[in-house]
Simulated assay, not measured.
Amino acid sequence: MCEAPDAVNFIRSLTLRQLQIFVIASRCPSFARAAEELHLTQPAVSMQIRQLEEAIGLPLFERVARRLALTEAGERLSHHASRILGEIKDAEDAMMSLTQADSGSIAVSIVSSATYFAPKLLALYSQQYPKVDVHFSVGNRETLLRLLQDNATDLAIMGRPPPELGTTAEPLAYHPHVIVAPLSHPLRHAHGFDLQELAGDTFLLREPGSGTRMVAEHVFRQNLFVPARSVTLGSNETIKQAVMAGMGVSLISLHTLGLELRTGEIAVLEVNGTPVERTWQLVHARSKQLSPTCLAFRRFLLEHAEPFLEREFAPFGLRRPRRLAEADGTR
């Protein structure tokens, strides 16, 4: 067993490139996936991680069910490495503030439900500002809260974060959640029935830590509702496929359903109290100094997100209620 290295020598032996590789690898299921994201070979990634582990004297990764997982040492280093890289990014942005807002880079994090529209908005932005390099990452709500806390992202598109996190959240767009079912469901054509009518159904839920799961649990508590059975699935795509296959029903973001509703492959049930009214939020750390590039991107999202989503989902008749728009001050 190797002896723990001297703390000063350990810090001096680290390189920014090693920290960058480690942070990316810590968010990937394998070194092969990290290598793809970093545009490196898998052996190069493995070598850098091995050198980092040798410098620390502790293993950073272990394999759990054929996937990479962080050890306790890896978890702690991930937190500090993200903060270090975030501070360096802030320093770069501060220097960039002396130049124009049509160049530089932006780090954007989005919850998985936003992957169905955010890339289209990013593409529109890139057409207007081709010199800006936009990096975006995807995770559940819990992951994004950690990225914000670690100063590892500039902006996040998600639901409202907890107030104690120290963030600024701005309403971005109306975000309805609906209950979906297979086309064969006996209540497919029913109008205005209570959630209790679905007590015998299997509810398909996202994993703990996701915003969609939190919305479902809130609705259940509000209605004193307990489904006969629930199944946890790890992604919106898996849930939609399971619903269409007849495994059960689910409460899910309307904005994940564009394709299925256009092709008529899934049914939205008219349950009383739905759509559940939520709002997409544009979030950044309150202590973060946004660069001119980030400020320009923020303005772009605040101006274009809601009109874009309303155009996309207007055919389904689920528009943002006027009272919700007035409450958020966005109309």
Rank of each mutant, 00 (worst) to 15 (best):
P5G: 11
F10Q: 09
I11H: 04
L16C: 02
R17I: 11
Q20D: 09
V23L: 04
A35I: 03
E36W: 08
E36C: 09
E36M: 12
E37Y: 07
L38V: 04
Q48M: 11
Q48K: 11
I49Y: 03
F61P: 01
R66N: 15
L68P: 03
E72K: 14
H80Q: 11
A81M: 06
E92V: 08
E92G: 09
D93T: 05
S97D: 13
L98G: 12
A101T: 04
S105R: 11
I106V: 15
K120H: 04
K120L: 08
L124V: 01
D133Y: 09
V134I: 15
S137E: 13
N140C: 08
L145H: 08
L145Q: 10
L147P: 04
N151E: 11
T153I: 11
T153P: 06
D154A: 05
L155C: 08
P161D: 06
E170N: 02
P171T: 01
H175D: 04
H177V: 02
P186M: 07
H191L: 11
L195G: 03
L195E: 00
L204C: 08
S210T: 14
M214L: 15
M214I: 12
V215D: 02
A216T: 15
E217D: 15
V219A: 12
N223L: 05
P227D: 06
A228I: 07
A228P: 05
R229S: 14
S230I: 12
I239N: 07
Q241T: 09
V249W: 01
S250A: 15
H255Y: 15
G264E: 11
G264W: 10
L269H: 04
T274N: 07
T279S: 08
W280Q: 09
C294S: 14
L301D: 01
L302R: 11
L302F: 10
L309R: 03
E312A: 15
F313W: 02
F316M: 02
A325K: 03
D328S: 13
